[in-house]
Amino acid sequence: MPILELTTLTKHFGGVHAVDELDLAVEEGEIFGLIGPNGSGKSTTVNLICGVVSVTAGRVAFEGRDITGSAPHRVLAAGVARTFQNIRLFGHLTVWQNLWVAQNSVEDRRSENFAKRWFFGSGATRDAVDQQLEFAGLAGKRNELAANLAFGEQRRLELARALATKPRLLLLDEPAAGMNLEEVHALDGRLRALQQAGMTIVLVEHVMELVMGVTDRIAVLNFGRKIAEGLPAAIQEDPAVQQAYLGGGVETAHA
């Protein structure tokens, strides 16, 4: 059974078919790439999965459970976390607080009683936040406001915040946008480490070095429809995909 299954998922914004009868199955443990030209419906697909945008028609199933139309915090509680294309941190909270408010996994909720949870948190969750900061390489910045971090640090913090909710499926919406090559390589390593730890990842990305290198399978969207799906090597050679990217090879689509 796929961990994430989209069945004829459709979203209309007025007359625009942003996502059009999309079928997709992501298997547990894989890194699944979702690519396509600008406006092809990748971000909308992510928004539909996590309940930020209402579904026009079709179905989203996570681990066999129907989560279509669930409120975002319920999708999260089910085990799906995400990051945003345009970074959305809590800018006026400190780095530490950004992670602390995200300790909302089912285990975290069970481990703390009401008063502990909503006042100062248990020692265990506070320690967990410290460890997550360490892992994200942000331990030295714990008391900085998130808005004052450098761009790359903000990306790392956003990923750390998504991981803090202990998801089983991680949706990454253009995590490499604006990164230099060195940072892209670091991200590549981080994603592989997460995969090793058992995480399933859906990667929406324009940066082809990252997508072609790290993903197990790729689906290509154009005008809200899936035009190709398969192994990265096959996708690169696919004529329909090359046509979608303005007639050139996939490599020309970096911008």
Partner: peptide, 9 residues
């Protein structure tokens, strides 16, 4: 939006 996706209702 991000708050909801950090699990806050």
């Amino acid at each position: 939006v991000a708050a909801q996706l950090a699990g806050i209702s």
